[in-house]
Every structure is written in C-alpha cells, then in structure tokens.
Design a binder for these strands. Structure first.
Lengths: 299, 299
DNA sequence: GTAAACGATTAGAATAATTCAGTCGCGTAA
DNA sequence: TTACGCGACTGAATTATTCTAATCGTTTAC
C-alpha cells in the first residue's frame, strides 16, 4: 500500500515466529509453506534493518531488537485482535466475556437456574444479574452498563429494541386443605375463597384485582405479603389461594402438596420481554447471548 | 492470508474513511484512487456484515457499529504504529522523546550548552542529565534508565559499547601575575611555580602528579580545592598555576585575563567516551542521538 | 432540468504473495 | 570423517490480490 509503511499483517507472522522459535513450525501454525514465512521474515528484516531472528542450531533466536519490539507491540496487537473479534465473531468457548443482565424479582428465580446450567459448557462466560430501576433501564442499556434487561412489556424509545422472551399467565395455587375443586375451580368458588395478595407495596390492589373489578366482582383478601414463595407456604398449610405467574408457580410447587389450577376467568398474559440497545444489536457476543436466552426461556 | 482473519492493513483504511467522512477524500489522503478505497471498504463490510458507513448526501456517516469499533481499536492501532516507528525510524522533528544522559562534573558544563543549542531545532526532544555512580552505569544502561553515559575510558563488559567522543589533554592555566613565559613554559619554571590542586578528595595526589613522579620530579602545591572554576579564579588573582583539561580551560578563560599553556611534558590524553547498552544500539532514536552527540563533541 | 460531485461496480493491468525446486549450512549418528 | 536429516535461504514460476481506468447510479447545487 503506502511506501515505507509496514504491512501490519506481517506482525502476525512476526509474533508466530517469535512464539514458535522456528520458521517451519510458524509456517505450520499459519497454514503456509516455510518459504512463504521466510519471505515474510525477509520483508520484516528489510524494514527494520535487523536480522530479527538468528539461527542457532535448529532454533531461531530473537535478536535484542526483536525481543524489545515484541514486548512493545504485543499489547497493541492483542487489543486490536480483541476489538476485531468483538465486532466480527464471538466464540463463547474460548473468549472471556461478562454479560450484565437486568432481572427483577422472581425473574431471577425463573431464569438464572436454567441459564447457569446452559453456561456450564462455557467456563469463560460470566453473568452479572442486576436489579435496575425501570426508569434507568434505557440509559443503562445505551451506556453499556447493562447488556440486556428482562421485564414485562414496557413503553420504550426507538433506541431500545425488544422481543418476546416467554409467555406467562396467571394461575391459582391451592393447598391440600382447599376443597371443592374436583370439577375444576369455578369463578364462584374462587370469589368465595380467601386469598393471599402478593405485592411489594403495603396497600392497593394486585394486578388480578384490576381485571376482576372490570368484571364487577372482587375477591376476599385474607393476607397480604411480599413474596410468592411465602404465599405458597401459607397456601400449603391453609385453605387460602394464591394467584401468581404460572412459570414460578410450577417451580415452587415441585415436591409439595400444592396444586396449580387455571384461573376461572380470562386474564391478559404476563409476557416477559428481552430489551437491548438497538445500535449494539449486531455485536456478535450480544447476538449469541440473545440466542442463548431464547433457548433458556423455551424450557 | 488466513481465511476469516481480517487484513490488518484495512484498519488504516477504515480509520482514514472515519476521519475524512468521504471515500474520495480518504483516497486522496492514502494516495490511492477512490475505487481502491471502495474495494477495501467492501472487504471490511463483508467481514463485519455491516455497512459501516452510510451515504447521507455527500457524507459517509458511520454506523453505530463502526463508531463503537473505531473507539475500541484506536488505542491499539496507535500503540502498534508507535512501536513500529520506534524500531524503524525516528523523526526528531515530530516525535517526542526524552533522552537520559549520564554526565559527570565538568562534562555537564562542556557538553550541555552546545547540546541544547543543537536541540533548538527539535522542540519535541527533551534531555535529562543525571549523575550516576560509576559502578551503576552499566545496569542503568541495560535497564533503560540511562540511554547514554559520557565518561573517561572505563572498563566495561561486552554488553556495553563505547566509542571515543572527544579527545582532551591537560593544559596549564596561568593568570597575568605569572611571569617568565614569553618563550613558553619550561618544565623548570612549571616545577618552580606554586600550584592549585583540584580534587574532590581531601588528600592524595592529582592525576598529573602521578605522571610527574614517574619522571622523578614533583611540583609545589600551594592550594587544594574542589572545583576548576574556583581554581581558575585564584590563578587569575595570583601567580598560582592550575593544571586541568583543555576543553574546560578554554571555556572558563573566555573574557578573563587567564592564559592556556601547553603542559611542558607529555601526559596521557584525557579522552571522553560515549557508553550505551549494546543490544539497544540499533534503535533509531538512539542512533540519531548518538550522531548528534558526535556533532556536538566536534565543536 | 442540467452540471457537478460522489460512491459503487466492472474489467483488465499491475503488483504482491505464495509455492515449487534447489542449494547451503548445521547437527548428529555411524 | 562421512553420510544423512533437518531447516533456512534464494530464485523462478504460479497464483492471488490490489489497484486503476472507465462507466454507471445517486445526490446535491444552481
């Protein structure tokens, strides 16, 4: 290309010779013939006006200039190769990468176990799960502080993309002390029963109560608590009912005497979406992780 | 070269397009035609599977991926170019460089004025003069803490190179009160005179006294002091003689009534040598500075 | 609407990189 | 000491890549 400017591709040849200490082995590593490597070395020698490697027996020993040059340029070459790889391809098996994921509340419980199981085969991959306030989600994604966020459908700007990750619905969890459901749970039975309302707020209706009030009915709240797990333990020991997302319900009732029942009336779905900063969406590592999350969500 | 490995020379093309925001201007900057740059960009686009630059009117606007890639790889590219330049060529006019020079005693006075005058035309060059114990000279040169040392002939290992920088001899400095030298200074007159001995030690003979004792003679020391400058001020005000290196003598007597006379007997020369760490001697910046020092010493 | 500026594409020329074939130097074993 | 194997170097031939000239399509300015 330009006169007097070193062909930067020769740096890779230099580095390989340096590492292998032999032109023949370097040629093998580069998938070239030995004379090709010899010619490349000749070009480097001409450029630096130094033999760079001196043959001693069957080893090519680096000259002081070669050694010093190798130490000086290596960090830059490593950094460039890393940058090129970041935007060209991502190999999760060999490349270290930390993914920052915004997960709220029960989504940690429903996603992280399967996700970490999937990452067993990728020991270089690390995941950091953070809870970010909803109002900060987009700025954190744009700034790269978060790679992805997982949440219900939220209004976002055109700078943030999202797609459906998993469908979820509300179901009813009942313990063995709750009777009268041999033919399924009717709306009358549901409304006559006493309920546990799960909310991090100390007052106000739950999401399901909004829908019931649209039907002109309301249920009887006997207990208000903050965590679905605690609510299920209560339902198991009493005849109170818990209305909650199905995915989490099925996780919790395992090896308990609790049952999952369909809600006796239609409720809008609780769909979980994956969010990311649109301009970054072509980055190979992020694309790979996105696919992985879809696989995990399909469990 | 290798499949799937980016031609690193394309990075320079990328960077130029990014900076110029136009293929035509980038081509001009790279001394290529516009289609050559277009081809290179096509290769980059294929590699990253991204347009990288989108034409908006007559500007090529970088895509988000291109922007992020530019920011990521720029430090590495800068570092590599710097490393390559360090070992290929050195341009003292435009490249910043600090040279560490080991100078003892009067050598600072005799070298630094002319050296700094020569460096007037190289504003990017900085010089640090350090006094290093003689026993530490070689380790400091090897470690790169010193680029060069200037001293009389010393015994050094094969890892340290040296070459003659300047020849010097001992001369006699006399003030206007000293008589009887119309036909030159004879050995008898020299021995009959009173002398100033300059030494940082509080006792013991000077170097010239070793040579005189080999002739079976000795001179009369009337004063012992530590600096040649002070000794010369004494000679100017009295009829005492000072025996000292010629280069410094000629510097000091300027615009005084002092005279420089040949020593009336042969003494071995006081040659000043330049020392450096042999393995580094091919580095272009050090080569350049070495040449400069020779020019300065030839003054 | 026209001319100029600019990027993309095609075809061919020029240049660079790689391979092939052969020679030379070094180290080791017989 | 000789023969052999290994590996680097060199030059010619071949292949691949890059660059240029020309042209086409798009955009901008007047």
């Amino acid at each position: 290309m330009a006169m007097n400017r070193l062909d930067l591709n020769l740096l890779h040849v230099f580095e390989t010779i340096y590492r292998e200490g032999s032109l023949t082995r370097a040629a093998r590593a580069l998938h070239l013939t030995q004379p090709a490597v010899s010619h490349s070395l000749a070009r480097l020698r001409a450029h630096f006006d130094d033999p760079l490697f001196i043959r001693q027996g069957n080893e090519m020993v680096a000259t002081p200039l070669a050694r010093r040059f190798a130490d000086t340029m290596r960090p830059g070459l490593t950094q460039i190769q890393s940058a090129v790889n970041q935007f060209h391809s991502f190999d999760p098996v060999s490349q270290h990468k930390v993914f920052a994921l915004g997960l709220r509340d029960i989504l940690e419980s429903t996603f992280l176990p399967h996700l970490m199981q999937s990452l067993d085969q990728y020991p270089e991959i690390e995941v950091v799960s953070q809870r970010i306030p909803r109002r900060d989600m987009e700025t954190h994604l744009a700034a790269g502080k978060l790679d992805f966020a997982v949440d219900v459908l939220l209004p976002v700007s055109s700078q943030t993309s999202h797609e459906l990750l998993r469908r979820d619905t509300l179901v009813v969890v009942a313990g063995p002390k709750f009777d009268g459901i041999e033919n399924g749970l009717s709306l009358e039975t549901y409304l006559a029963a006493r309920h546990v309302l799960v909310s991090s707020r100390t007052e106000g209706p739950g999401i399901e109560d909004f829908e019931l009030s649209r039907l002109g009915v309301h249920r009887r709240i006997a207990l208000r608590c903050q965590h679905y797990y605690a609510a299920c333990r209560v339902a198991e020991a009493t005849d109170l009912l818990v209305t909650m997302p199905e995915t989490y319900a099925r996780m919790i009732i395992q090896q308990t005497s609790l049952r999952v029942l369909p809600l006796p009336t239609n409720m809008p779905p609780l769909n979980v979406h994956l969010y990311w900063h649109t301009p970054y969406e072509k980055e190979p590592a992020l694309k790979w992780f996105r696919e992985l999350l879809h696989q995990v969500a399909a469990h």
